[in-house]
């Protein structure tokens, strides 16, 4: 590995460290916001979609930056994302089916 490459990579990683800290700030803010939202009475009717979006954003930030999917080979996304998609659909479909079942469709 040539010295230039080395420096370039080091620079890349410095900017990564910066990104990690920014993400940490956003995560802390989003969590605080989530907690605040859950206590606001006026927001109760839209609480579920709101929280899904907020925690979805937190989830995505951790996966993209801390778990490096943003930087890494597409192969890792290719392994994880289908599993995640199936997991999400399992929750939605299973809950949907069972709720209809309890309600006597």
């Amino acid at each position: 590995m040539s010295p230039q490459e080395h420096t370039a990579e080091a620079g890349d990683h410095d900017s990564r460290t910066f990104a990690y800290l920014v993400v940490a700030g956003i995560l802390a803010f989003l969590t605080a916001f989530e907690v605040w939202v859950s206590y606001v009475h006026a927001l109760q009717p839209v609480l579920v979609p709101l929280l899904v979006v907020l925690s979805g954003a937190k989830f995505a930030l951790v996966v993209l930056f801390y778990m490096h999917l943003h930087y890494d080979s597409w192969a890792f996304s290719g392994i994880f994302l289908p599993g995640l998609a199936l997991a999400a659909s399992v929750v939605i479909v299973l809950v949907g089916l069972m709720v209809r079942f309890f309600a006597g469709f």
């Binding site: 890792f76 392994i79 999400a88 929750v91």
Partner: peptide, 20 residues
Amino acid sequence: WSFIASESLFFASLIATYLV
């Protein structure tokens, strides 16, 4: 990563049960 994909389904099943 394969393990994590599999674990996602594990927790999805637990979460679905909680919600159901």
